[in-house]
């Protein structure tokens, strides 16, 4: 019973959203609004069950961890945002989270996004037994990265053999990168459609396996 009603409801809403392809209509709009409402309601439930109950209410009520009142009070300050006279108090929890998370993230981002990436670009172009396509690939990777970086370097005019040629090669490399992304994007978009059609044909209509 539950499954049957569930599948039919899901199928009706799926078709309602697809009806947008023909023309905007009230059913589509209803779906659009329901998504916002249900996801927010779901958010409330999950937040209570995953955070507030096990990490705040239970430890205070059962174990007397009264120190947790500090983050709770700090969190409550967010709500002052709705009272213009004391809205500035909402900056305190924001400042706490903002400052500390930036500080925590700084050395790790430096390692993950900059140092490791630079290190990985400094590589041997050739070693014994390396297939030719890897050797060519390594050359393309190292020179291509340099060229693309030159293209993004706007402090010097893109003229002359270094900056001019470099930036020209750079934009070619970037276009290849965007092309690869585009090729994958086509695949991704079609996959999402395939998922929904599988639902309609298999779960709902049961005409395929």
């Amino acid at each position: 019973m539950y499954e049957t009603i569930g599948i039919w409801t899901a199928a009706i809403f799926t078709l309602a959203v697809y009806s947008f392809l023909y023309k905007e209509n009230p059913l589509y709009r209803l779906g659009e609004h329901l998504v916002v409402g249900i996801s927010t309601g779901y958010f409330i439930v999950v937040t209570y069950e995953q955070v507030l109950k096990p990490r705040l209410i239970d430890p205070i009520a059962n174990d007397g961890e009264y120190i947790l009142f500090i983050p709770a009070l700090l969190g409550l300050l967010y709500i002052t945002r709705f009272f213009p006279k004391i809205a500035w108090l909402s900056r305190y929890p924001m400042a706490f989270i903002m400052g500390t998370s930036m500080g925590v993230g700084f050395p790790l981002s430096m390692k993950a996004s900059v140092l490791r990436q630079l290190e990985a670009t400094i590589l041997p172009l050739y070693s014994a037994g390396m297939p030719w396509q890897i050797v060519v690939g390594n050359v393309v990777l190292v020179l291509g990265t340099l060229a693309a970086l030159i293209y993004f370097f706007f402090s010097k005019p893109h003229k002359g053999p270094f900056f001019g040629t470099g930036s020209k090669i750079g934009i070619w490399v970037i276009m290849i990168g965007f092309g690869a992304t585009f090729g994958f994007t086509v695949m991704g978009r079609i996959s999402l459609l395939i998922g929904r059609i599988q639902f309609l044909l298999n779960d709902w209509l049961g005409v395929i396996k």
Binding site: G105, L108, S109, K111, A112, S113, R116, G177, A180, T181, F184, T185, M187, G188, R189, S191
Partner: peptide, 21 residues
Amino acid sequence: TYGREKIGLPVAFGVTAVSAT
């Protein structure tokens, strides 16, 4: 950033095609 770079945690991705490249 927070697992691999902090403690060397081995990581594997399963991502959408759009962001795979």
